Amino acid sequence: MGLTGSVSCWAATAPAKGVDSAQGEDLSYEVAPANTNQKAAPWYNQNFTLIGSKDISFGPRPSDDIYLEYEYFGRKGPFELYGYIDAPKILGIGNSNDSGAWDKGSPIFMEHEPRISIDELVGRKLGFGLFKEFYIAFDWIYDMGHNKAGRANTLYTGLGTDIDTHSPVNLSANFYARRQWENYGASNENSWDGYRAQLKYILPLGKYSNGASLTYVGFTNFDFGSDLHDEPGSPRTANATVATNVLLYSFTHLRFMAVGRYFHNGGNWKDGSQLDFGDGPFEARSNGWGYYFGVGYQF
């Protein structure tokens, strides 16, 4: 789930008036005025979404799942917040490569992507040219797992910026170094291992007489420089790319989404490698398309 296995980070998105960040700043699904007293705070957005996924290749065997996701996002002063918490296989529906709390899998998968405005911390505008604002950026990904071998704990740390495209496209970029703790027993545990370059982009497509809006949301993560491939004959790779494309059809509270996500060396697994995890040999499938469909409610 997440940027490493769910479809969440796309979702900080249907732009509201005044939006100038694709990271999640001041973004709202609202297309009509709502009673902000119903929110935890006027700047704080949250929603629940039920998501069905198919052929998701963050491991060498694609998984299908139906799971529940809680998501939040907003901007308060220098702090830009975005994150989600997933309950994998919450309905007990998924293929043999998928597991959740009810069948000795992971009960929780979550990702949190806060950014802190350097401009606001120092009290002056640092942007220049196409770069509108600069941030200290983080991306923490945690898979609780059923045991240590099924757990992952990754922190990306770096710098971010919002980019002026002189067009309706909202664009944000982040560059991170990766600190890896648990990683499902992989050889890069407890080390600094590699980097991530990330782009997020949003394009409003239209508003309709029924009060709905249609938005394209995309983000691409390019991971590189990992030492996982160093062992002779290793089925792991130094690089991995995930490109996510979302169509979001949303009302004030109700929203529907359809997602196509392309994986190349998903999870740093080499496509076509011959593997055996103790239940018989198989060929890794870490390149190709995966899909998500979801319905959610924002409050």
Results as ranks from 00 to 15, higher is better:
2 G>C: 11
3 L>Q: 14
6 S>G: 15
9 C>D: 15
10 W>G: 15
11 A>M: 13
12 A>Q: 07
13 T>P: 04
22 A>Y: 03
26 D>A: 11
26 D>G: 15
27 L>F: 01
33 P>E: 13
36 T>W: 09
37 N>H: 10
37 N>K: 15
41 A>K: 05
41 A>W: 04
41 A>N: 10
42 P>K: 01
44 Y>Q: 04
44 Y>H: 10
47 N>P: 00
49 T>I: 15
49 T>P: 00
49 T>W: 01
55 D>C: 02
60 P>V: 07
62 P>H: 08
64 D>R: 10
74 G>V: 05
76 K>D: 06
77 G>I: 11
77 G>F: 04
79 F>D: 00
81 L>E: 07
83 G>S: 04
85 I>C: 01
88 P>H: 02
89 K>S: 08
92 G>Y: 02
102 W>G: 14
105 G>N: 03
109 F>C: 00
112 H>L: 12
117 S>L: 01
119 D>C: 05
122 V>N: 03
130 L>F: 11
133 E>G: 00
133 E>H: 06
134 F>R: 04
134 F>M: 09
135 Y>W: 09
144 M>P: 00
149 A>I: 02
150 G>Q: 14
150 G>L: 08
154 T>Q: 15
154 T>I: 15
155 L>V: 14
155 L>G: 01
156 Y>Q: 14
156 Y>W: 09
158 G>T: 14
159 L>W: 14
162 D>I: 07
164 D>R: 12
166 H>F: 06
169 V>S: 11
170 N>G: 03
173 A>E: 13
173 A>Y: 15
179 R>H: 12
179 R>L: 12
179 R>E: 10
180 Q>G: 00
188 N>Q: 09
188 N>V: 08
190 N>V: 06
194 G>P: 09
195 Y>T: 05
196 R>W: 06
198 Q>N: 15
204 P>I: 03
206 G>V: 02
206 G>F: 07
212 A>H: 12
212 A>I: 01
220 T>N: 06
226 S>A: 11
230 D>T: 13
232 P>T: 10
234 S>C: 09
234 S>K: 05
239 N>Q: 07
245 N>V: 01
246 V>L: 11
249 Y>V: 07
252 T>A: 15
255 R>G: 08
257 M>I: 05
260 G>I: 02
261 R>Q: 12
264 H>E: 05
264 H>T: 02
267 G>P: 08
267 G>N: 04
274 Q>T: 02
280 G>N: 04
281 P>Q: 07
282 F>C: 02
285 R>K: 15
287 N>P: 06
288 G>V: 10
288 G>T: 08
290 G>K: 03
292 Y>N: 05
293 F>C: 02
294 G>S: 14
295 V>M: 14
298 Q>N: 10
